[in-house]
């Protein structure tokens, strides 16, 4: 096992940030921690990277105990905190240089690890980090976390603020790091990214709701789900919310996802109802649940 977490709990003054959390991550596994803001994700990352003590429970990373062997852990893991701490007044290259030096390595030695991401910010390597765009900073922070070739990589919302193309490239890169037997623990608010993990843990209010492969988690979705569209999205959402048989309605791009309270859903009846609300071009089609649907249903 690369990461073992056993019965970890942590409270701040009157908030239970983590309650009896347990899970294991295998070597080379890409494991996702998925949960809403304030669910306890960052607390978990900080405990595993030895920056914070748990109140109860035990955890090991690469076989080392997070309390007694913290020095070994710090040397061998990479951590990209959600609110990262780049040196704003150092240039792009100087930041990277700095992180390489404190881990006793050089940019050249592990360049192949960061290349795919770094080439995108390399044209600006003499620019101060403070003057980069939001997403460019995020990419630099990732390079800094990777430059010493860690055995385990902790990424706390690494792609927040990163554009769709770069996100795709970023995940392709994570898959390549995995091939090199690097274990990755990653949290993300993007549900399409959750689907790319080997396994995910859904967490909420400091508790794990479910741990499984993304495919299995989606299969557990309890209800048939329908794509509904009409000529006016805002009116459509308001009308569905006022419908007597509604269980849930969530916008999903050009459609909304609708679920019904009843066991037997009647599409014709819904269409008539929406027409009575002066909506037109109404389409109702069955669709399949995504991780995002599952997540929202669990968090409801």
């Amino acid at each position: 096992m690369s990461i073992c977490v056993a019965n970890i709990s942590k409270s701040y003054k009157n908030v239970k940030a983590l309650q009896d959390i347990s899970f294991n991550v295998k070597v080379g596994e890409l494991f996702g921690i998925i949960g809403p803001d304030g669910a306890g994700k960052t607390t978990l990352f900080r405990i595993l990277t030895t920056l914070l003590f748990a109140d109860n429970g035990r955890a090991t990373v690469s076989g080392w105990d997070v309390v007694s062997d913290y020095k070994n852990i710090r040397k061998s893991v990479g951590y990209m905190p959600g609110r990262f701490s780049l040196y704003q007044d150092l240039t792009v290259e100087e930041n990277l240089q700095f992180f390489a030096t404190i881990f006793g390595t050089t940019i050249e030695e592990n360049y192949d690890l960061i290349k795919d991401i770094y080439v995108q910010i390399e044209p600006f390597k003499d620019r101060r980090a403070g003057k980069l765009s939001g997403g460019m900073k995020q990419k630099l922070a990732l390079c800094c976390a990777l430059i010493h070739k860690p055995k385990v990589l902790f990424l706390d919302e690494p792609t927040t603020g990163v554009d769709p193309v770069s996100r795709k490239e970023f995940w392709e890169m994570l898959k390549r790091l995995q091939q090199k037997n690097i274990t990755i623990l990653v949290s993300t608010p993007y549900m399409d990214e959750a689907a790319l993990c080997d396994r995910i843990a859904l967490i909420q209010d400091g508790k794990i709701l479910e741990i499984d492969t993304p495919e299995a988690i989606v299969k557990h979705y309890p209800k048939p789900i329908y794509n509904v569209s009409a000529n006016n999205m805002y009116k459509l959402i308001n009308s569905l919310n006022a419908y007597q048989y509604i269980h849930s309605v969530y916008p999903f791009g050009e459609f909304v996802h609708y679920t019904d309270k009843r066991a037997e859903f009647n599409a014709v009846e819904l269409k008539l109802y929406l027409e009575s609300k002066n909506l037109s071009n109404i389409r109702i089609e069955k669709t399949v649940a995504t991780i995002e649907d599952t997540f929202m249903e669990l968090a409801k």
Binding site: D37, T160, P189, I237, P251, M296, A299
Partner: peptide, 16 residues
């Protein structure tokens, strides 16, 4: 950016 799926949708309702 970084906001969870449910809150993100509530935010868009405010925009609408």
């Amino acid at each position: 950016g970084g906001v969870d799926p449910i809150t993100r949708r509530q935010f868009w309702e405010m925009i609408y």
